[in-house]
Design a protein around this nucleic acid. Structure first.
Lengths: 215, 215
DNA sequence: CAATTAAATTATCAATCGTTAATATTTTGC
DNA sequence: GCAAAATATTAACGATTGATAATTTAATTG
């Protein structure tokens, strides 16, 4: 992570440490969960002492939310660009593949999103991911009613339920792929980030979407 | 849970409490994770004091594994019956729907399975779920080579990777549905356990399998 | 019913958790 | 370069964690 690309505008020492903290925290939270990760581990992973964390984040919870925020931002941005740019139906069918590319750069985030979705309802992490899903849902519904590409039964509740099930399925398929890294290594003796396998997964995603659209 | 059906053979008081402990632990572990759940919570949920737990389970870890074991057993059994009974290809395509019915009786188990799959590799919980997935994989591979229903490229590694991706996708689709209970309630204003929605999910599962088979 | 075993309780433990206070050390901006 | 601000450290805190010992209560069995 850390994204110290060419856009790295002269950042102060403190900002640099903050990024390193976020890097370490993202890996640890993803692999061990929120409760399973201690601030001691994060501090050690960053190479500083525990109380130094508090110069950058007010609490463990705040740090966790910052991790989620930083990870969710690229997704939200890609989604926004995709929607604002061209909202033909075909573009929506490409979203999972785009998300797959984004997650490929930070595979741990998939675990964090799933964990956040299952956390208690009033946690900010849960709300962040939920809001993102809702936006996808709204856009999906809009595009469907606009193009009538899927069974419009006339009953809005039924249509909503069907759409939600499809959306949730695509979400689980897309993120779940990255959650199954170890299982895949055991079963197929390969790596999930291998371009061949990414291509397979994208083909599968397209196939599933197509199957959904023919109702 | 507790399964105090008609098959409840005269169980001693201790065995009865052990089941109640497992019930409480399963709910708590599923909703809060292993580290997020304390033995105090489990004891309180059972209606006993904390050290009394140790009369039934040697440690927190042992209790956790017992929960997984009890939850995984019905799945493994259904899988075994299905395989031994009739191993026509069609039966394999019905497995996800069968698993959906089983999970419907104990929706929390879906979260436990996913958590176990992501836990550290040498934990027994992880190994239990992994072994179960491996069995599914082996059976799937056997049935595919037997019936040649899917692209047999001649390259075993490639076939394995493709099969693993499909299997993992079905696993994530099937369990993920139950993990998205809250998201579904928010989006579609309905409940995932509603028979209509279960029917929708099963139709989706079938559609996806069919899409997989036409390669 | 009585004796034995099983199961529950109270009290307590060391270890670890997130967090704060007080202080020392760098970085930063003029 | 020097003052001010930012960032780090050491030391310690109350709370909670999983677990044990000693003991009392309840259940099982002959």
């Amino acid at each position: 992570m850390s994204d110290t690309g060419m856009t790295a505008k002269r950042q102060t020492k403190g900002e640099k440490t903050a990024q390193r903290i976020l890097d370490a925290a993202a890996d640890l939270f993803a692999s061990q969960g929120y409760d399973g990760t201690s601030l001691r581990q994060i501090a050690q992973g960053t190479g500083i002492t525990e109380p130094a964390l508090y110069n950058h984040f007010a609490s463990k919870q705040a740090l966790y939310e910052a991790v989620l925020h930083r990870g969710l931002n690229p997704m939200a941005q890609a989604l926004a660009e995709h929607i604002d740019g061209a909202s033909r139906l075909r573009d929506y069918t490409e979203l999972p593949a785009i998300m797959t590319d984004l997650l490929l750069e930070h595979p741990q985030m998939a675990a964090l999103f799933q964990q956040a979705m299952q956390g208690d309802a009033n946690s900010l992490g849960t709300q962040l991911v939920a809001a993102w899903l809702e936006r996808l849902f709204d856009e999906g519904r809009r595009s469907l009613t606009r193009y009538g590409a899927v069974a419009n039964s006339g009953d809005r509740d039924q249509d909503n339920a069907a759409l939600a099930i499809n959306l949730i399925a695509m979400f689980n398929l897309t993120t779940g792929y990255f959650l199954s890294q170890r299982a895949f290594a055991t079963l197929a003796n390969g790596n999930i980030t291998d371009p061949d396998n990414i291509a397979r997964q994208k083909r599968l995603l397209h196939k599933v979407i197509r199957a959904m659209l023919v109702s």
